[in-house]
Amino acid sequence: MSAEHTAPPVTAFMLIKTMPEWLAMTPEERVNAFATEVISAIKAKTTGVRSRFYDTEFYSTRVTDVWVWEADDHEAYQLLIDVLRETPFWDRYFEIVDLLVGTENGYARTYGLDPVATIST
Rank of each mutant, 00 (worst) to 15 (best):
T87Y: 05
A3R: 10
Y93E: 06
K45W: 05
M25N: 03
T26P: 10
V63R: 04
E57F: 14
V38S: 00
V97E: 11
T103L: 01
D65M: 12
I16D: 06
F53L: 13
N105T: 11
D98Y: 09
L80N: 00
V49S: 02
P9H: 00
V66R: 04
I96D: 03
D72A: 14
V68Q: 11
N105E: 14
F53H: 12
S60D: 14
E21Y: 05
F34Y: 15
T110P: 00
T64A: 04
Y111V: 06
S51A: 09
I81D: 01
P8L: 13
D82W: 01
G112D: 09
R92N: 12
A33C: 06
R109H: 08
A41S: 14
A33L: 07
A44H: 02
P20L: 08
A41P: 11
P88W: 00
E28T: 13
P115C: 08
T64D: 14
P88Y: 01
A24C: 04
E28N: 14
V101C: 09
A24Y: 01
V68T: 11
Y59F: 08
M1Q: 03
R30T: 07
T36M: 06
L23R: 14
V101N: 05
E37A: 05
E70H: 03
G102Y: 07
V49M: 04
L84F: 06
A44S: 08
T56R: 07
E29V: 09
A76Y: 10
D98K: 05
T110Y: 10
T118E: 12
D65Q: 04
M25T: 04
L99R: 03
F89I: 13
T46C: 12
H74S: 08
S2E: 05
D72C: 07
M14F: 09
F58D: 04
N32H: 07
D91V: 05
A76N: 11
D91C: 07
A3S: 11
I81G: 00
M25L: 15
A12F: 00
I42L: 03
V63M: 06
D55R: 04
E70V: 13
M19Y: 09
F89N: 09
E70Q: 14
D73M: 01
V68N: 09
T118Y: 10
I96W: 01
